[in-house]
């Protein structure tokens, strides 16, 4: 199990229109996300929460600074090594990015395929996680027939099916009712208890109704600070 995911002096800037100038979305962020804890990052829309999660997941390269996983600078690793490390990361995106040609079960099985194990094991694991997220009745359905909330639960199941060491969830309950949000909160808590690093980004003020948070950070003006 990982001990910590950290950002050191992390800056991310994006190009400002056609000119060569850039706008810094995140500025010199230093933070540590320890294993076995659930960390909530809150902030207004556009504050950079999703960008920070994408950086932590190795999907974006920082403009400067680095992301350290167990002290290793994964953000500076060669692409092939970073991709291999990313297999240990489960990401719940704001958009679900489900493959519309596949069924729900096939979508959830996808992260297991590069791993060893039999198709039977993949199916059983997928069924199990879907059941825990109250979505087992959807297994044979095409994802194109699902509602927004159902799609989000399937995407969450896909992120968690492989019991990842790092769980990065971006607004994971945006389309969920309280009962389903609480189920997800329970799953994330269990993952933290087995030692995983859990980082949740949300602007929902009622997060405490479904998720027991160990640390609450606030992202504003490019800076990440403990929430008041």
């Amino acid at each position: 199990m990982p001990t910590a995911l950290a950002c050191r002096n992390l800056t991310y800037a994006y190009p400002n229109g056609a000119s060569s100038a850039t706008t810094a979305l995140l500025r010199n962020i230093d933070a540590v996300f320890p294993g076995g804890r659930v960390v909530l990052i809150s902030g207004k829309s556009g504050a950079g929460k999703s960008t920070l999660l994408h950086l932590l997941a190795g999907l974006l390269r920082p403009t400067s600074g680095e992301i350290l996983a167990d002290g290793q600078p994964v953000s500076r690793w060669l692409t092939a090594h970073r991709d291999r490390w990313r297999r240990r990361v489960g990401i719940v995106f704001q958009q679900d990015y489900l493959v519309s040609e596949l069924t729900v079960l096939e979508n959830v099985m996808l992260p297991l395929i590069p791993r060893s194990g039999s198709p039977r094991y993949w199916r059983e694991s997928s069924h199990n996680i879907l059941a825990r997220l109250n979505a087992v009745e959807l297994v044979g359905q095409s994802v194109s027939t699902l509602s927004g909330g159902q799609r989000q639960r399937v995407a969450t199941a896909r992120a968690l099916v492989d019991a990842p060491d790092y769980i990065l969830a971006d607004e994971p309950t945006a389309h969920q009712d309280l009962e389903n949000a609480q189920r997800l909160g329970h799953l994330l808590r269990q993952a933290a208890e087995r030692g995983a690093i859990v980082v949740v980004a949300a602007h929902d003020r009622h997060v405490d109704k479904w998720l027991k948070v160990d640390q609450h950070l606030s992202l504003a003006d490019g800076n990440l600070e403990p929430a008041p």
């Binding site: 800056t11 400067s64 600078p73």
Partner: peptide, 14 residues
């Protein structure tokens, strides 16, 4: 160095 220039160079080297 973890500055912008070095990170850009790392990407370019790949």
């Amino acid at each position: 160095d973890t500055g912008a220039q070095q990170l850009r160079l790392q990407t370019q080297s790949e």
